[in-house]
Nucleic acid binder design. Structure first.
Length: 560
RNA sequence: GACCCCAUCGUCUAGUCAGGUCCAGGACAUCAGGUUUUCAUCCUGAAGACAGGGGUUCGAAUCCCCUUGGGGUCGCCA
């Protein structure tokens, strides 16, 4: 190849569809995408479903949705909305079996690979023994010494077998990594690893090398956990006379406690609770049929719906690790993108807030941080708050409505369009996420008899203390509000403000807070005039009366 | 355990490659004041780090070595 010839940049993200897209994967995809975009290249999505036991079609669909939601589009790959397609498919490994087999055959016929007949159990045992003896386990190459007659006999018997790659020599393998520089792996650290499983599927190591070559991938960008594996990949590439792509291994994302943030964290959290509480039988119908299978091995993971159902039954909060978790929690995709990009990369000059375009224009591997980063939810939340506050009211209302449609349908059902719009707008200034205001807005859709007056310090203070007290203000306000014919924010405001001017020395808070509690049951709501307007006169009057009814109860407990 | 990677405030980082302008800058979190009709915001200020030890150098956060600490890998998972 001519050294000066421009090489087309082609990057790929190759997840295994065994769950939802988690934030680490999302960041890898983001870097792949930005790097390709900036250089006029292509970003390819490939589904690495080489594990039949763990792959599911639904999971791979979830990945596509998550990626699209983040605004990461792919030029080639599974077709979804306006993304995907391409000439280098199929983009599912499970549909490329013939291709892998032809290369396996090639290696086999050239003596660069060989069949082995040990069972997984035998290997497991050998590994255990090696560890017990404080030895590093390496496959002993027993199968390499099998004579052809024996092999033929086993094959004729249909004995399960795998294909192993034969390490060519003892030359150290050096990897040039764009993040880490040059890394050398001693071949003593490797052994004749499996490249074709007994079920006829290739292992990841083999599939990834073949696919990257055939799909013309120029830059392999992936998590640091693959750094050691890369030596294997280079060896396979050499054996097959493939070229070496550029490598870039980015560091991992940690949980706040310093452990690796992993797609298995939810599963781990559930197992911990089950163990702690000594739960023997399935506590939740949804998981009944998977229960014993799940308990059997840490490799067996419940799918996300079942895990969520189990978590609900057990009343445990699952850690937020998936892109979809943050979507539900009301984070804006552009904020997640921004934050994720910053977690492992920095544009310098104290720049922190930026959009996708800026990322594409400025992203480069020489500014990728080598050390792992902890995922800091507080900072993400602060970013989200800033972004939400920077939205126009119209934009916020639209997003709030979309979110509501997906996750809080009851608000759409119970409020009129006008009420809904007003509530959304009233919630804008106090929203940190698209989701957090729903919880404190429940009283808007509750029936009057559902309102429970909290007997907390803040409530008592607002209702019982002062001269006149909050209850006294409410008593006086009730007839005044009843007389308002046009129940709009202006009229409510002038009545309440005039009252406060005459009876609370102009201190609106003295009057607003009792009203707030009367209509909501607690001390938290959107701005008071908006709140009263949305609720409507009848509801407001009715709830003030209800509140006044608990007066004696509240007062009698006030010194307790 | 072996191998690989990494190391600046509690956290994310700027500064490191081209050593002096850094008694180390920003952001989040924290704390103290202030604004505000609640919650949330918002404003002002404070505290807070070059893991340790050796070198090299006139000079080291920056270069080298060791130690320590953290992480990853060691699967018929990816």
């Amino acid at each position: 190849m001519n050294a000066s010839a421009p090489t087309t940049v082609r990057t790929r993200f190759a997840p295994s569809p065994s769950g939802h897209l988690h934030v680490g994967g999302a960041r890898t995809a983001l870097y792949c995408w930005a790097y390709a975009k900036a250089r006029g290249g292509s970003f390819i999505l490939r589904i690495e479903d080489t594990d039949q036991k763990r792959s599911s079609h639904a999971a791979s669909l979830g990945f596509l949705e998550d990626l699209r939601w983040l605004g990461i589009d792919w030029d080639e790959g599974p077709e979804f909305e306006d993304c995907g397609g391409g000439e280098f498919g199929p983009y599912f490994c499970s549909k490329r079996l013939d291709i892998y087999h032809s290369y396996i055959d090639k290696l086999l016929s050239e003596g660069k690979a060989y069949r082995a007949f040990e069972t997984p159990e035998e290997l497991q045992k050998a590994r255990k023994e090696a560890r017990a003896n404080k030895q590093n386990y390496r496959y002993d190459r027993a199968a390499l010494n099998l004579d052809q007659a024996t092999i033929d006999k086993y094959l004729a018997q249909g004995k399960p077998n795998v294909v192993r790659f034969k390490l060519p020599n003892d030359q150290p393998v050096t990897i040039e990594d764009k993040v880490r520089g040059s890394v050398t792996v001693d071949p003593q650290e490797l052994d004749d690893f499996v490249i074709l499983k007994a079920d006829g599927f290739p292992t990841y190591h083999f599939a990834v090398v073949v696919d990257d070559e055939l799909m013309n991938i120029s830059d392999v960008i992936r998590g640091q956990e693959h750094l050691n594996n890369t030596a294997k990949h280079v060896l396979i590439q050499d054996a097959l006379s493939f070229k070496h792509p550029n490598f870039a291994h980015i560091s991992l994302i940690f949980n706040p406690d310093g452990s690796k943030m992993s797609k298995r964290d939810k599963d781990k959290a559930l197992r911990k609770v089950v163990k702690e509480r000594n739960i023997i039988d399935s506590p939740c119908d949804v998981v009944n049929e998977d229960w014993s299978w799940w308990l059997e091995s840490k490799d067996h993971q419940l799918d996300i719906e079942k895990a969520t159902a189990l978590a609900e039954t057990l009343d445990v909060a699952l850690p937020e690790i998936n892109v979809d978790d943050f979507r539900r929690a009301g984070y804006l995709p552009e904020v997640l993108i921004n934050y994720l990009a910053l977690l492992g990369w920095s544009p310098g000059n104290d720049v922190e807030k930026f959009d996708r375009e800026f990322l594409v224009e400025n992203f480069s591997f020489d500014r990728v941080i080598k050390s792992p980063a902890k995922f800091d939810r507080d900072k993400l939340l602060a970013f989200n708050l800033d972004a939400i506050q920077a939205l126009s009211t119209d934009e916020f209302v639209k997003l709030w409505r979309d979110h509501c449609n997906c996750y809080h349908k009851e608000f759409m059902d119970k409020l009129s369009d006008e009420q809904f719009e007003m509530l959304a707008a009233a919630n804008h200034p106090r929203a940190k996420t698209l989701d957090d205001t729903f919880k404190s807005s429940y009283f808007f859709i509750a029936n009057d008899d559902e309102i429970v007056y909290e007997k907390t310090k803040a409530v008592r203070k607002a209702l019982c203390n002062g001269e006149p007290s909050g209850f006294e203000h409410l008593t006086a306000l009730e007839p005044l509000l009843s007389q308002i014919n046009d129940w709009d924010i202006q009229n409510i405001k002038s009545v309440v403000e005039e009252y406060a001017g005459q009876n609370a020395a102009g201190k609106l808070g003295k009057v607003a807070q009792p009203l707030r509690i009367a209509v909501s049951g607690g001390p938290v709501s959107p701005a008071i005039f908006e709140t009263l307007t949305i609720l409507g006169r009848d509801t407001v009057i009715n709830r003030i009366k209800l509140c006044l009814k608990v007066q004696s109860d509240m007062l009698s407990n006030s010194n307790a």
